[in-house]
C-alpha cells in the first residue's frame, strides 16, 4: 500500500504539472482539494482519467469522486479494492 501511495503522489505531480511540489510535500491524509493541495474541478477530471488509464477503474458515478479523491489514503484504498490492472 505504501508503494502505491508514493506512486500516486508521483503521478499526481506529473499529470497535474505541480511545479515546486515534491512527493514529500504531500502527506497521506492531506486533503487533495480545497485547503490541502488546492486542486480544482479540472484536476478532478484529470484524476478520473488517471484511474481509468493506469488502474483500469471507470468511475461511472461522479458523486463517488468526492470521497475517493479526498486524500492519497482514500485514493490508494479505492484503487487497491477495485483495480483491474
Amino acid at each position: 500500500m505504501s508503494d502505491l501511495k508514493e506512486e500516486l503522489k508521483s503521478k499526481i505531480i506529473s499529470v497535474l504539472n505541480l511545479e515546486d511540489v515534491t512527493t514529500a510535500d504531500i502527506a497521506d491524509a492531506d486533503p487533495l482539494f480545497g485547503d490541502g493541495l488546492g486542486l480544482d474541478s479540472i484536476d478532478a477530471l484529470e484524476l478520473i482519467v488517471l484511474l481509468d488509464k493506469d488502474y483500469g477503474i471507470k468511475l461511472t458515478d461522479p458523486k463517488q469522486g468526492k470521497a475517493i479523491f479526498e486524500s492519497i489514503n482514500t485514493m490508494a484504498e479505492y484503487i487497491t479494492a477495485n483495480r483491474t490492472k
Binding site: V15, I42, L45, E46, V49, D52, K53
Partner: peptide, 13 residues
Amino acid sequence: DNQEEFLTPTSFI
C-alpha cells in the same frame, strides 16, 4: 497514444 481513449481536459481547453 491512447487510441482515442483517456483524453484529459487541460490540453484540450
